[in-house]
């Protein structure tokens, strides 16, 4: 009886260890994370509209069918990244993701940045150079520090009416997404 209880207790403790290991290593070993899914989309150094799934189709990225999405991928090993352009007069927001799908930074145009998006993304080494004023950037650039060199940016735009969606998406697609020459 005592031995059985000890086995159960041992199993419980070992189970808790397995649980903690699973939780901690899942982000490292998963092949189905958001970054893996956007990896197949051609969006390096350019803004690509994400296709919204039709009714009944699977929606692995959990896109909101009422929104329009612009995706751009940046490799900061080639230099700091920037996403810049003018967006339509409607609600929009921007989020910078690292390679684990974690949101590093996000903001909306309700935060006083109006219609113009001017976002700079720097890795830790580039941020140091920036602090030492060894990189020239345009004034007013929103500065985001990324932990990894592989990042992606998603701009969400809310067309006020379905009839203007195409026009708004065309403007969204014109956002510049590139590395800054240093």
């Amino acid at each position: 009886m005592v031995r059985t209880l000890l086995y159960l207790l041992g199993g419980l403790l070992l189970g808790l260890v397995i649980h903690l290991v699973v939780i901690l290593i899942l982000p490292r070993i998963s092949e189905n994370a958001a970054y893996t899914q956007v990896a197949s989309i051609e969006a390096l150094n350019r803004t690509t509209l994400l296709a919204l799934p039709k009714a009944g189709e699977a929606n692995p990225l959990h896109l909101d069918p009422d929104m329009s999405y612009g995706l751009c991928k940046l490799d900061l090993s080639a230099g700091p990244g920037e996403v810049t352009g003018t967006l339509p007069l409607a609600f929009w927001s921007v989020a910078v993701y690292d390679s684990t799908g974690t949101v590093l930074y996000s903001t909306t145009n309700r935060d006083g940045i109006g219609q113009t998006l001017d976002l700079g993304i720097f890795d830790p080494a580039q941020t140091r150079l920036l602090a030492e004023q060894k990189i020239d950037i345009s004034p007013g650039l929103l500065i985001v520090e990324a932990r990894t060199d592989e990042v992606f940016v998603v701009v969400r735009l809310a067309p006020p009416h379905p009839s203007v969606r195409d026009r708004y998406e065309a403007q969204l697609e014109r956002l510049a997404c590139r590395n800054i020459a240093i």
Binding site: V22, I23, L24, L26, P27, S30, N32, A33, A34, T36, Q37, P60, L61, H62, L63, Y69, S93, A95, Y97, T100, G101, T102, V103, Y105, S106, T107, T108, D111, V154, R156
Partner: peptide
Amino acid sequence: PDPYTRAFITRNAALQLGQAEG
């Protein structure tokens, strides 16, 4: 995010809204 939320983000594989977005 805390480790549980980080694991959830991975498993969910969605484009999460940033805290400032909603």
